[in-house]
Amino acid sequence: MRELGTNKENTWCTGCGNFGILNAVKKAINSLVAEGVPLADIVMTSGIGCHGKIFDYLALSGIYGLHGRAIATAEGIKLANPKLTVISFGGDGDSLGEGLEHTLFAAKRNIDLTLILHNNGNYGLTTGQFSPLSTLGYKGLSTPFGSIENPFRPIPLLIEAGATFAARGFSAKPDHLASLIHQAALHKGFSFIEVMQPCVSYNNNYTELNNTVKMLDIVPANLNQAIDLAGDSDNVYLGVFVRKQLPVYNESLLGSFIPVKERFTLAQRRKMLGS
């Protein structure tokens, strides 16, 4: 078991759901490494917000990118070196606000990488404003009289966009979450995991979540059932909603070619251009 930590002081609030996610990620990476995936082949990207600090606490190569753009950056990594296992982390605002287009297009392409959405229902690091996933009526500094927008339903949205693996975990169930991350990383195609996560400072829904989570026993038989279960407003189902095999963008583009390894030399390029 590798520690996979860094010397960086952790600045998440005590009781933050991100601790559970961090532990689950470490556990999942350890199981991948135990199965023979070189640690050097696992890279990460993260956006900006509380979730993004996971970049500083994980001993993985990667890019701490721009708010909303980490998924696009992850796609660029995967295309240049498709041998890498790429995991991208996003918050509500990253993945479904500022970066919604990139999230949907990554799913549309079915590019082979994993997006972990830290759903804490608000913008924690900027002091609790409402997010694309905040409930109707959510009161924050920018919506003092309550949000007048309905939240997105991330899993139905991503299924419709083309994700071939979609699952939901809960930061308070790190072993289950670790298993989901492990499956997502091994899944060939775009994998999406929504992680339900209380924000202890601005949106502490821990008790409510704990009372409403239910485990999915099996992967739903069809997409309609998956969408119904994922969008259920009374029960927060945890587990895998969709798992299917479809053509993968990076393979359709590159075949077995690895751009960063199989490069023409300058002399070859000179000759080809000149002739």
Partner: peptide, 12 residues
């Protein structure tokens, strides 16, 4: 532009 920076990171 953000994809490009990812590819550069990977060595392209």
């Amino acid at each position: 532009a953000n994809m490009a920076i990812g590819s550069v990171f990977a060595g392209a």
